[in-house]
Amino acid sequence: MKKLINTPDGVLADSLAGYAAAHPEVRVDPENRIVYRATPKEAGKVAVLSGGGSGHEPLHGGYVGLGMLDAAVAGEVFTSPTPDQVQEATKTVDTGAGVLHIVKNYTGDVMNFDMASELAAAESGVQVETVVVADDVAVQDSLYTAGRRGVGTTVLLEKIVGAAAEEGRDLASVAALAHRVNEAGRSMGMALTSCTVPAAGKPTFDLPDDQMEIGIGIHGEPGRHRQALAPASDIAQLLVEPILADLDFTGAPVIAMLNGMGGSPLIELYLMYGEVAKLLEAAGVTVARPLVGNYITSLDMAGCSLTLLRADDEILRLWDAPVVTPGLRWGA
């Protein structure tokens, strides 16, 4: 395992320390592994909180700041944070208007956040609403399974909902918007290589030099199937088709994110976006806002994912609103 780390068990603590040193505009609670805005939001505004396992940077800590999150709670690599951590962050960010929890749909995340909101409500009376992001079309959705994974739409949702909270909307309205965004987002991912979890010390799966995994998530879990390595234009098709088959993206402005998994350089991500853009145009989909880069990663995995969000004027306006975070920044 080749990584810029000290010890496998110290990765999270050491990385948070560096994050704190690099970004005076956030405040890091090292004990509880929580990233807060250095300057908290004005009283009376809904707070927006997210969190999950680490290894997806800049998600979530990189999205703490004006116009996006109030706090991000970091679990160990690929492991949901604990209820205690989430409850602590929830209590801290509440200004009296309640807190929205943005949770990616994984059994562990959902259970730990559930326990946290039970605790927060019982012990401190904080009003909590939760949106569980579930947008990965690689996963079949059914009543009898854990449902779709939460992946790329999380980034877009944190931005859009964060802007709404900044405007001073109430908790019910912010939560309703969050659900609406979640229902309008779809993602699909692929990997050229496995990632390596520091504590595991070796790649999660073996992938021969001439093969790729299609339908991967962001935790190094193998995908839905494996196939021969293909040109970027074919890969683009493998990402675009299942998304368009799942939801109609025509007739509305679309936010499109071509996301890198952490180990693929920007030159390749732009190339992939070019292929995706061609297919979307041919399918009559209008990309109103493109976003290309590493936004929700899977450690050092090489590969990419595509997220499309069917937007409208309100969502676009919130998307364009100022955001000042280490991971996403514009308008201020």
Partner: peptide, 19 residues
């Protein structure tokens, strides 16, 4: 345990339980 979790999960069950 982590190897088992690598095959069908996210390679952390051993680390989680041990911690």
């Amino acid at each position: 345990l982590t190897e088992l979790d690598s095959a069908i999960g996210d390679a952390d069950h051993g680390a989680n339980m041990d911690r």
